[in-house]
């Protein structure tokens, strides 16, 4: 592999996809359409969210190089992103026919199946990938997404912790730990996750936005809402209702009524205050 490709790959790994694209454009004409150069191009474009161009690049690469698992992976991802799921499946299966143990292809296909609601098949695919490369970042990320889709937030957070433990330098790991912690109402852990992710990759808009959302959640005015965030609306509501009913049942209707009124005020607070805090925090950031 020549120095330009090495350089482009390094730029991509450090989160500078635009520079990587510039670097790739310096390649001589006969190397531009090489399989690896095209894969790097697709990776850089996907980081910039230019998925239509990812598809074009993958097709151009396939036309120049013939069938290639790495390029079929990018074609499949871009078709999935464009909402053409059957075409995405065909590309990924073509890739898997050539490289049945390719971890990236297995995980991309698992993502596709999960988005189509086929969670069991997605689970089996990611298990295959995990048997092959249990510590690969893409395997962790796919397992976390799958656990989230199943509604198993605890498992999703557990895998995220494992991911951060195995790859403490990986910003995506921290961001996923932030996201899964937020889903369970662990506000401080969530903020820490996104803060580390944003620090490691300051160019990523999503990490910065999530970190700011959690700055909102950590605002002093949001402190009374911690129980709802921590235990979820369901448990908090059930406890409140059980208390109100219990007080009435043991012959303290006044106290029960009072608690009911406090609970109502709390609900109104939980609807009104978060948008206001968000507005204030945003303003102080601009």
């Amino acid at each position: 592999m020549n120095a330009t490709l090495h350089h482009a790959q390094a730029l991509l790994a450090t989160g500078r996809p635009e520079q990587a694209l510039t670097e790739l454009s310096r390649l001589p004409a006969n190397e531009v359409t090489g399989s690896f150069a095209m894969q790097l191009r697709c990776a850089a474009l996907s980081r910039l969210d230019r998925w239509a161009e990812v598809g074009d690049a993958a097709r151009a690469g396939l036309a120049a190089n013939g069938p290639d698992p790495g390029l079929l992976l990018w074609l499949g991802r871009s078709e999935h992103e464009a909402g053409r799921d059957p075409q995405a499946e065909r590309a990924l299966l073509d890739g898997l026919a050539m490289a049945p143990e390719d971890v990236d292809l297995l995980c991309a296909y698992a993502d596709l199946c999960a988005a189509a609601g086929q969670l069991d098949k997605a689970g089996k695919l990611v298990d295959l990938a995990a048997a092959r490369a249990p510590q690969a970042p893409v395997v962790y990320a796919t397992r976390i997404q799958l656990a989230h889709a199943r509604g198993d937030d605890r498992e999703a957070q557990r895998i995220s912790r494992e991911f951060v433990g195995a790859h403490p330098e990986n910003p995506v790991a921290h961001a996923l730990l932030g996201g899964t912690s937020a889903a369970r109402g662990h506000v401080d852990a969530a903020y820490e996750g996104f803060r580390q992710a944003a620090a490691a990759r300051p160019t990523e808009q999503l990490f910065a936005e999530s970190a700011m959302e959690l700055r909102v959640a950590r605002h002093p005015l949001m402190r009374p809402l911690r129980p709802i965030l921590r235990f979820g609306a369901l448990k908090t509501w059930l406890v409140a209702v059980a208390l109100i009913i219990g007080l009435r049942a043991i012959g303290l209707p006044v106290l029960g009524g009072l608690l009911g009124f406090v609970w109502l005020a709390y609900c109104v607070y939980s609807w009104v205050v978060p948008p206001l805090v968000r507005k204030w925090v945003m303003r102080s950031w601009r």
Binding site: P86, A116, W237, C267
Partner: peptide, 28 residues
């Protein structure tokens, strides 16, 4: 050995209709 897994199962998704509500929010 993974023949079952590598058989195509994805069908054309129906065009998205109205976006769903968060089921947790129906508690209110």
């Amino acid at each position: 050995m993974h023949d079952d897994l590598f058989r195509p199962t994805i069908r054309e998704q129906p065009p998205p209709g109205k976006p769903p509500w968060r089921p947790e929010s129906i508690v209110y």
